[in-house]
C-alpha cells in the first residue's frame, strides 16, 4: 500500500502548527486512497519535534546531524526525497509556509513528481483546488504524474487530532549532500504576541496608520491578538516584512480580523477573506474593504481603536 509522507516543519525542537494542517490534508487523501501516513522531521531538534508528531498516531522518521542543522533547501529536500523513496511514498504533503515553499519543488524535481502548490482543498486522488490571480479564481488542478507533491494552505485544513496510540520514532539514515549554500545568520523578529498565522484574533494596520502602530497594538493587547499589516506598511519599513498579510505574504483566517486604515486591495483580501468575522475601520466610506467586512465602521482609526480597546476591556 502506498504511503503518504508528511514533511514536518520545526524549529529548535518545536513542531510548527502548520504541520498539523498538512497532516489533516494527508488524512483526507488517505481516506480516499487507503494509503498509510508517515512523517519526517529534519534539522536541529528534529528528535524532539518527532515525538510531538508521533503523538498523532503516525510513524515518524528523524533526520538530524550537522549536515541538516539549518533549513537549507538543498539538504532538507534531499533528505525528504530520500526518506520518501525508502518509505515507498506515492505522495508527499507539506504545509505551504516559507519553509515548505522553499523545499517542496526540489523534492518534486528529485522524485519526478508533479507539484500542486498552496492547495485549498483535496478534490480527489489527483485533483486539488488552488487559488490563482490573487484569489480572483479558484482552479481545480490535476497532477498527472504517479508521484505527487502537494503543499497545503494551513488555514484551509484544521489541525489534526492526537492519535489513540503514539507512532514509532526512528532515525533515518540518509546521505548528507554537499550544499552550495551556507547559512550565515538569522535576524529574528522577536515578538511576545501570538503568531500571525495561528492567532485567534488579528488586528492589522495599513497606510492609514501613517506608521503609528500604537493604536493597533493597544487593541491587539486587550484581545491577545497578533498584529498584521498591509504591503504599504512593510514597504515603508514601518513594520517587519513577515507581518504582511495577502496574496504574496501571509494567509490568515482567524476568528476575528480587524482591518484599520487598510483600503482593501484584492492582494490584501487574498490573505484574509477566509477570516470568520471581519471588521473594517476606515474613514473612507467607499473603501473596498467594506465589501468584505461583516461589520464596517466609518471612522478615524486614531479615535476608534483606543475607544474599542477601552470597550473591550470593560467586557472582560
Amino acid at each position: 500500500m502506498a504511503t503518504i509522507l508528511v514533511v514536518a516543519e520545526q524549529s529548535n525542537g518545536h513542531l510548527k502548527k502548520a504541520t498539523l494542517s498538512a497532516l489533516t490534508a494527508a488524512q483526507q487523501v488517505a481516506k480516499n486512497t487507503g494509503a498509510n501516513i508517515a512523517g519526517v522531521v529534519i534539522g536541529a531538534g528534529a528528535g524532539q519535534a518527532a515525538q510531538d508528531l508521533a503523538a498523532y498516531g503516525i510513524p515518524v522518521h528523524v533526520v538530524e546531524g550537522a549536515a541538516f542543522e539549518h533549513a537549507l533547501a538543498e539538504t532538507h529536500s534531499a533528505a525528504a526525497a530520500e526518506v520518501a523513496k525508502k518509505a515507498g511514498a506515492g505522495e508527499v504533503v507539506i504545509a505551504a509556509t516559507a519553509y515548505g515553499k522553499d523545499i517542496a519543488p526540489r523534492i518534486a524535481a528529485k522524485l519526478g513528481a508533479g507539484l500542486a502548490s498552496d492547495v485549498l482543498a483535496i478534490v480527489g486522488a489527483n485533483q486539488f483546488k488552488r487559488a490563482m490571480w490573487a484569489g480572483n479564481a479558484i482552479a481545480t488542478v490535476e497532477v498527472t504524474t504517479p508521484m505527487k507533491v502537494v503543499t497545503v494552505r494551513a488555514t484551509e485544513f484544521g489541525a489534526a487530532q492526537k492519535g489513540q496510540a503514539a507512532g514509532t520514532v526512528t532515525p533515518a539514515q540518509v546521505s548528507a549532500p554537499q550544499p552550495k549554500t551556507k547559512f550565515v545568520e538569522f535576524n529574528e523578529v522577536k515578538s511576545a504576541r501570538p503568531e500571525l498565522t495561528e492567532a485567534r484574533v488579528v488586528v492589522s494596520g495599513g497606510r492609514g496608520t501613517k506608521g503609528d502602530f500604537k493604536p493597533i497594538e493597544q487593541l491587539a493587547d486587550v484581545l491577545n491578538a497578533a498584529v498584521g499589516a498591509s504591503r504599504a506598511v512593510v514597504d515603508a519599513g514601518w513594520q517587519p516584512n513577515d507581518l504582511q498579510v495577502g496574496q504574496t505574504g501571509k494567509v490568515v483566517a482567524p476568528q476575528l480580523y480587524v482591518a484599520a486604515g487598510i483600503s482593501g486591495a484584492i492582494q490584501h483580501l487574498a490573505g484574509m477573506k477566509g477570516s470568520k468575522t471581519i471588521v473594517a475601520i476606515n474613514k473612507d466610506a467607499e473603501a473596498p474593504i467594506f465589501q468584505v467586512a461583516d461589520y464596517g465602521l466609518v471612522a478615524d482609526l486614531f479615535k476608534a481603536l483606543p475607544e474599542m480597546a477601552e470597550a473591550v476591556k470593560k467586557l472582560q
Binding site: T97, T181, F183, F186, N187, V189, P240, N241, D242
Partner: peptide
C-alpha cells in the same frame, strides 16, 4: 524573507 525574520544565506 522567511517566517519570523530575515535569513542571510
Amino acid at each position: 524573507e522567511v517566517d519570523g525574520g530575515l535569513e542571510i544565506l
